[in-house]
């Protein structure tokens, strides 16, 4: 298909609008240098309930891994996943809501010989405890990874019923962690109630440089309750790239080892002390390498974080 109505993609924005950025980037790094070529070890964060360390940049799979049965597209996604693990990544997040994503991830993992570093995170997204059990069992099979590390209650759908099952499965050792998720700006009050009244290992919600509502209640509560925080929509579903299109990365961004806007956005998130892991999604190997680069090098301090916000809000 070549016909196009809009055709505005992250790559086009970056290529078409980022001439100045490309120039600076070319001076800073040798040609074809991997975006994570730093001497520092990958940034990891602790899951408070166990003390386990996980790399701070994970991988989401909404849209990007929903490629159905097409083997060419599956093979391309396997390369994305390979780049993720090669760059030190571990946490892969999915959901039964994401179409064929779980099955495709399972196919890719098998294709890659089951990377041992995998931290598998999926969700339960259905009504009734019975259907939840069936769905989670299906997820176990689709991932082909011999068990799941984390299951989260997707958007708090029928959370009381599923929490009972997750507690039971965790007690049996069938999963290692349980959690709950919500997406941008929705059901925050209910999420707070669930967090206050239940022992969750992880919570997942939206947080990025322009959507910072989580700073006021969700992040402090997660810190207080000892819950790991997984951040979704770190790029505001790609809208952040449209927001900065045509604007070069500020010179001072190199002080925190940012080579591109993706790393700028991710380092803002990762520098919040309560955040455990951000899960950007991509279907491109080059973008995966850029994303993973955010888990290396220096991180912004409080002052620089404020400067980052002012910079992006001012564009």
């Amino acid at each position: 298909m070549k016909g196009s109505l809009k055709g505005l993609t992250r790559r086009r924005i970056l290529v078409g609008g980022g001439v100045a950025l490309a120039g600076v980037y070319a001076r800073m790094l040798p040609a074809f240098a991997p975006a994570f070529a730093y001497d520092t070890p990958i940034l990891t964060r602790t899951i408070p309930s166990t003390g386990e360390q996980v790399p701070a940049v994970g991988m989401g799979s909404w849209i990007t891994f929903n490629v159905g049965a097409n083997e060419t597209l599956r093979a391309a996604r396997a390369e994305v996943l390979r780049a993720f693990f090669e760059a030190g990544g571990a946490l892969v997040d999915s959901s039964p809501m994401y179409g064929s994503s779980e099955e495709v991830i399972g196919w890719c993992l098998e294709h890659l010989g089951h990377p041992p570093r995998l931290f598998s995170a999926t969700k339960v997204w259905t009504l009734t405890q019975f259907m939840g059990r069936r769905q989670m069992t299906a997820s176990e099979e689709q991932w082909r990874s011999g068990g799941l590390d984390l299951i989260q209650i997707h958007n708090l759908v029928d959370w009381e019923a599923h929490l009972e099952t997750l507690r039971e499965w965790k007690g049996e050792g069938r999963i290692r962690y349980l959690g709950a998720t919500t997406s941008h700006g929705r059901r925050h009050s209910e999420m707070i109630e669930v967090m206050r009244g239940n022992d969750l290992d992880t919570v997942q919600f939206t947080y990025n440089i322009l959507d910072r509502e989580a700073e006021s209640r969700l992040l402090p509560l997660a810190a207080d309750r000892g819950m790991a925080v997984i951040v979704n929509r770190p790029f505001r579903r790609g809208k952040l790239f449209e927001h900065v299109a045509g604007h070069p990365l500020p010179e001072w961004a190199y002080e925190i080892d940012c080579a591109n806007w993706a790393q700028f956005f991710l380092k803002f998130i990762l520098s919040h002390p309560t955040v455990t892991c951000a899960i950007p999604a991509t279907s491109k190997v080059a973008h995966m390498r850029e994303n993973m680069g955010a888990a290396y090098g220096r991180m912004p301090d409080r002052d620089l974080r404020a400067r980052m916000v002012n910079c992006v809000e001012g564009l």
Binding site: M1, I63, N66, V67, G68, A69, L73, M97, G99
Partner: peptide
């Protein structure tokens, strides 16, 4: 927002 892309949509048609 749709949970799949244009490429996936056409790949689906090819198989179907």
């Amino acid at each position: 927002m749709l949970p799949y892309t244009r490429d996936v949509y056409f790949a689906l048609f090819e198989t179907y």
